[in-house]
């Protein structure tokens, strides 16, 4: 079974036997993959079709709205809490980050990097909101509310005393280490208190 490349990067960061909460878990792809490696835990998903898809895969899923917070989960009850490509579409951006580190010892957050060169180029050349592979929406029809660049996310972490344990920046399958905020289209952060 092969995973979407960003999910594979997340999966690589999760040790066998960990107890994981996957926020906005979609159809349960990540958790199904991890279950085969002895990882337990739950997905949280708002869409009923995705909830049913998770149940079909045998992935434990809790239907709920992340905007309402993680009140259903106890403090420090998970080893890792995952939020993949969702934080940019949330209203309660800061709150969810804080809540993730309340219920989990570690959080993994991925998001499309707005600082990616193609976005910058489109703004520069066309003077219009960029539409790219990782941000594939017109400005008037986008779920994204809080797009950010690497430095923005790191500043939010610093403001809240959150430590960046690991940062991986990617462009497609490729890991980007040189000028990541310019050349990387997707960012993965592993953070903790």
């Amino acid at each position: 079974m092969s995973l979407r490349s960003d999910l594979q990067k997340i999966a690589n960061d999760i040790p066998p036997g960990a107890h994981v909460l996957d926020l906005g878990c979609g159809d349960g792809e990540l958790l199904a993959y991890l279950a085969a490696r002895g990882v337990s835990g739950y997905g949280v998903e708002i869409d009923v079709d995705n909830v049913i898809a998770c149940v079909e895969r045998g992935v434990d899923v809790i239907q709920g709205d992340l905007e309402a917070g993680l009140a259903g989960f106890a403090d420090q009850s998970f080893d890792v809490v995952v939020l993949s490509q969702t934080i940019q579409a949330m209203k309660q951006t800061e709150q969810i980050l804080l809540d993730m580190l309340r219920v989990g010892r570690e959080a993994i957050v991925t998001f499309p990097n707005f600082g990616y060169w193609q976005n910058r180029l489109q703004i520069l050349l066309h003077g219009r909101m960029p539409v790219s592979e990782t941000i594939p929406y017109a400005w008037y029809d986008t779920p994204n509310l809080h797009l950010c660049m690497l430095g923005d996310f790191e500043a939010l972490c610093a403001k809240n005393g959150i430590r960046v344990v690991e940062r991986v920046v990617m462009d497609g399958e490729q890991e980007i280490t040189f000028l990541p905020n310019l050349l990387g289209s997707l960012a993965l952060y592993r953070v903790s208190r």
């Binding site: 009923v48 049913i52 434990d60 899923v61 239907q63 709920g64 009850s77």
Partner: peptide
């Protein structure tokens, strides 16, 4: 129902929960 679900999660039991429209 969420009270049941929360307690099961706290007890690390396997549970899925759906809130059907």
């Amino acid at each position: 129902s969420k009270e049941i679900v929360k307690a099961l999660i706290d007890a690390k039991r396997r549970v899925s929960y759906a809130e059907i429209e």
